[in-house]
Simulated scan of single mutants.
Amino acid sequence: MPGTVIVGGQWGDEAKGKISSYLAVRDEPAVAVRAGLGPGAGHTVVHGGRTLKLRQLPSAVIHPGTRLLLGAGVLVRPDVLLREIEEFGARDRVGVDYRATVIDPGHVSAEAADTVLSERVRSTGSGHGPALAARAMRSARRAEDIPALAPYLADTVREVNDAVDAGDRVHVEGTNGFGLSVLYGTYPYTVGKDSTASTAAADAGLGPTAIDEVVLVFRAYPTRVGAGPFPTEMSEEEAERLGIVEYGTVTGRRRRAGTFDMDQARDAVRVNRPTRIALTFLDQVDASCRALRTGELPEAAAAFVARVEKGLGLPVDLIGTGPGTADVIERWHGQPAGTDSDMATGVGGNR
């Protein structure tokens, strides 16, 4: 049973939440771990007629049999996490690693007061950078220091490794995107930590040999929130013509949109070493493939997928065609395989 890491290949907004939720329904993992940064990264899941906007819990929350963990590498904002636990009825399924760093109100205030972060980088204002700095200086509080989190404290490293050793499926859900990595992205216009598959696994406490599958998610027309280079950016008017008018899940800011950047995607492939490529929002390329789940792609959509495959030298195995969890065409080495027709879907903006 594989350990699977799901990460983004661009600047976030790639529909990692959609792909993670699809794989959770398909694979029924025993454990799903949220990795990556913290509550400044929102994942949207559209399932069973509901739109779930998640900032702390893994997208596998839609699968009732999955244990939901926050890894030691994740920043935790207690009020956000506790609100999500109640909203999504996950009280009996959540574990928070006792070592996870807590975002305090002072970290949020410090970020707002830092003109480099608030004005130049245009960060989300979630307190990530100051919390990471406090952890580096060994002054940050950890989850074990917060009484309200006591019912949920766990040794998630032991849990995920026990699951791997037992042959159970483990999913690790990264946040942000490769282009926002503080190491490999468009520094200084990045988040405060690395956002690659290797770091996601480390956030969950898993060594490299525990990971059998890396799913790297790209979207057909990438988007970006905040400042920073965007070589293929299009005008707002062109984005509107294509129907790409979106707003950040956390910030509410309008997302900048651009065309697929093959050079940037190759860089993401080089560092993340994916075993599977997911390509989402294909219905923005060709509206006639919207919500398609099996069969052949329309000509324009098929040509776009072929171009991405040729440019990356890898097959596209998962194709997002609409907002719902089940709006995916799954292929293996380029061959249509269909999907589970019993999976529920809904409407929304995530593809």
Rank of each mutant, 00 (worst) to 15 (best):
V182E: 10
L297K: 01
T280F: 03
A301L: 11
T209F: 14
S198K: 10
A301T: 03
R224M: 06
T223W: 00
G174R: 02
G174M: 05
S288E: 10
T223M: 10
S235G: 08
G174E: 00
V269G: 08
D212T: 02
V308S: 06
A227K: 01
T199M: 13
L216T: 00
K310S: 14
A287S: 15
N272T: 06
I244G: 01
A202L: 14
S181R: 01
S288M: 11
G177P: 04
A201C: 09
P229T: 04
N176Y: 06
T223L: 07
A265M: 07
G295K: 13
I211H: 04
Q264N: 13
P208D: 04
R255I: 03
T186R: 08
R254T: 00
R254S: 02
E236P: 01
C289F: 08
S198I: 10
R307Y: 04
V225T: 04
I211E: 04
T175Y: 03
A303R: 11
V305C: 07
R224S: 02
A200T: 00
T186M: 12
K193A: 15
D261Y: 05
S288I: 05
A291K: 13
R219P: 05
L282Y: 07
G243K: 01
G258T: 05
T294P: 08
P208V: 05
S198G: 15
G311F: 02
G226N: 00
E213R: 15
K310E: 15
G258F: 07
T209M: 14
A306K: 00
P188L: 08
A306D: 10
E299H: 12
V182S: 14
P231V: 12
A268C: 10
Y184A: 13
V245S: 09
G174Q: 02
L279K: 05
V305E: 01
R290N: 14
V271K: 04
E296Y: 06
D283T: 06
V170G: 01
K310F: 09
V215K: 00
E296C: 12
G228D: 03
L242M: 13
S195W: 05
R307T: 10
Y187I: 04
T249C: 13
K193T: 15
F178H: 14
S235M: 07
G185W: 00
E299K: 12
R256I: 03
M262L: 15
R253F: 09
R307H: 10
A227S: 13
P188E: 04
P222Q: 00
L279F: 09
T223D: 01
E173P: 07
S235K: 02
H171C: 07
